[in-house]
Computed example of a mutant assay.
Amino acid sequence: MITIVPDFYDQFSCKAGSCQHTCCQGWEIDIDEPTLYRYEQIKGEIGDKIRQSIIIRDGVFIFQLTDDDRCPLLQDDGLCQIIRTLGPKKLCKVCAMHPRFFVYKSELELAGLGLCCEKTCELLLERDTPLRFCIEGTDETMDFFELLKMTDIAKYLPRDCASQAMSILHATSSLTVSQILRIMELTEPINDSWCQLLAKIRQETTAGKLTLPLPPLETWPHDQQQAYDRICQYILYRMLPRLSRWHFGHLADYAKMNTTFIYLAAAVTGDLPESLRLWSAQIEYDTDNVEIILENMLK
């Protein structure tokens, strides 16, 4: 099987204690059976603490979060006690792999890094060049539409692929701010920050400070155009396995609508990387919320 990765994949390294949005807080962490067995064999104080931190919920072994929603093995300095005491090889599968993802389409494994991780957002946005993808283990690279053409995804594309590229990468959503907010407000909030963001966008819209449609992206400054191009492509890249259920054009509209929302969020916060990260944590990491958006875009 061929594995595809984005051009920044190999540059990832966890920010550990310097991360402002640790993945060890606010997320329930499932423990796979092989790791659970290893934890049962660990001796000493650290072994006792690990076992005391594990509970069963709905038939799944998880770390029981503290009252402030932190993993019990997360230290005050933001570092993992398991890594510091036993080394990274003792992590459970979820912790060891996050924020990496692996999805499948045709004979391809589409791998990447989740945008709920602030380091991933930094890597995606640090270049002002078009996003490229690599065949892992080779020097071969391709742009997004070359990637589509090497798979059976190509059958979902119109004959004029260049026009489709412009439609996806150099346009914002045709929906109004109110329409986008209506859809986003249907999703299940992940935290108060998400609710506050939606309220701020609505407030700015009501005051006449935010309007759509935006000017075509190709008229924007180069660095800003490339940033939103890369965001749009990467959102669509992760959605490609859903082609078995959704039409390619609808997934492209999904990518454009969410890219437009991220633009609106960045406009009111002044922080594009954090707007992208919060959107991903709210939407991409909740499959129900993804489906809510896909279904309500059709209404």
Rank of each mutant, 00 (worst) to 15 (best):
138 T>H: 03
120 T>R: 05
208 G>M: 09
281 A>T: 01
210 L>K: 03
278 L>F: 01
281 A>P: 02
212 L>A: 10
212 L>T: 11
82 I>L: 07
186 L>V: 09
108 L>Q: 03
75 Q>F: 09
6 P>W: 13
219 T>F: 08
260 T>F: 07
284 E>T: 13
94 V>T: 14
194 W>H: 08
80 C>G: 10
47 G>T: 08
276 L>K: 10
116 C>T: 11
231 I>Q: 04
273 P>Q: 07
263 Y>G: 01
196 Q>V: 10
215 P>I: 03
278 L>S: 03
239 M>Y: 06
240 L>I: 15
28 E>V: 09
253 D>F: 03
21 H>T: 10
85 T>S: 15
299 K>Y: 08
54 I>R: 03
70 R>V: 04
275 S>N: 07
62 I>D: 03
49 K>L: 14
297 M>A: 06
232 C>M: 12
63 F>M: 12
212 L>R: 06
191 N>H: 09
244 S>L: 04
245 R>S: 10
112 G>A: 08
280 S>L: 08
280 S>F: 09
269 T>S: 15
161 C>Q: 15
8 F>K: 03
28 E>C: 04
107 E>Q: 10
212 L>K: 06
142 M>A: 08
272 L>V: 14
12 F>P: 00
89 K>Q: 07
229 D>A: 12
228 Y>G: 09
232 C>P: 01
22 T>I: 12
122 E>C: 01
207 A>E: 11
83 I>R: 10
77 D>P: 01
7 D>S: 13
38 R>V: 02
297 M>Q: 15
126 E>H: 15
